[in-house]
Nucleic acid binder design. Structure first.
Length: 205
DNA sequence: ACATGGATTAACT
DNA sequence: GTTAATCCATGTC
């Protein structure tokens, strides 16, 4: 993806615009990936939920301070989380990619994760496991220099985008800001109820 | 964050 | 009444 996709807009707008783009990973087993159906914006030093809150900076979150399009991966409880920096150098904002609707070589992802159906990629740790990424190797790398890529344009357009508070952000002034965005009625959105899913359209136009 | 198992509630024939 | 969906508590790096 071209870095021009980022920077021109605020990170929350970029996050909404990212829904429907296709994330691909040129893995040793083949090209795998899917449509981005859920993501969260982290708005930088003002954002009480951001790793860069109040300018916090360490070797672990250095990627947030890098150029737009830089990959930021961190691990928690043995799971890996995929983020992308969205602004200019020293403007530490980013997007957490939370869920994919698989489109490429689904069987490979099923093997990587030992799961099937919506469970394959309906969470930030699950999608990384499905892709077979289980290290920090790509942290700090610009997207375009890695086997990971995001399509320049939307492959599909959401019928409707829902904005909601971020997952597991319960404290701080920003705890209830609507910075989690997802494709309404898409079955691969984390925590979505079956009764709210549209299995005909998956929420796309 | 995720997987699992058990309890509770909803849906269906 | 049976089956499915949802909710809740626990253990895990």
């Amino acid at each position: 993806m071209a870095t021009s996709f980022f920077k021109k807009d605020s990170t929350d707008i970029i996050t909404q615009n990212l829904l429907g783009h296709e994330l691909t990973y040129n893995s040793p087993k083949g090209i795998i990936g899917g449509l981005i159906v859920e993501a969260e914006a982290y708005m930088g030093i003002e954002d009480t939920a951001a790793h860069s809150f109040q300018g916090h900076r360490s070797s672990a979150n250095e990627a947030l301070y890098a150029q737009a399009g830089t990959i930021y991966i961190y691990s928690i409880y043995g799971h890996y989380m995929l983020n992308v920096a969205t602004q200019k150098v020293n403007e530490p904002q980013g997007i957490l990619i939370r869920a994919l609707q698989p489109t490429h070589r689904i069987k490979i992802m099923e093997q990587n994760r030992q799961q099937k159906g919506v469970n394959l990629t309906n969470g930030p740790g699950k999608l990384m496991a499905a892709l077979g990424i289980n290290s920090l190797e790509l942290n700090l790398c610009p997207l375009q220099q890695t086997p990971l890529d995001i399509s320049n344009r939307r492959v599909k357009c959401p019928q409707k985008i829902i904005a909601a508070p971020r997952v597991n952000v319960s404290q701080g002034n920003w705890h209830d800001r609507p910075l989690r965005f997802y494709v309404a009625n898409n079955p691969y959105v984390s925590g979505i109820k079956k009764r709210d899913c549209d299995f005909q359209t998956n929420g796309w136009q």
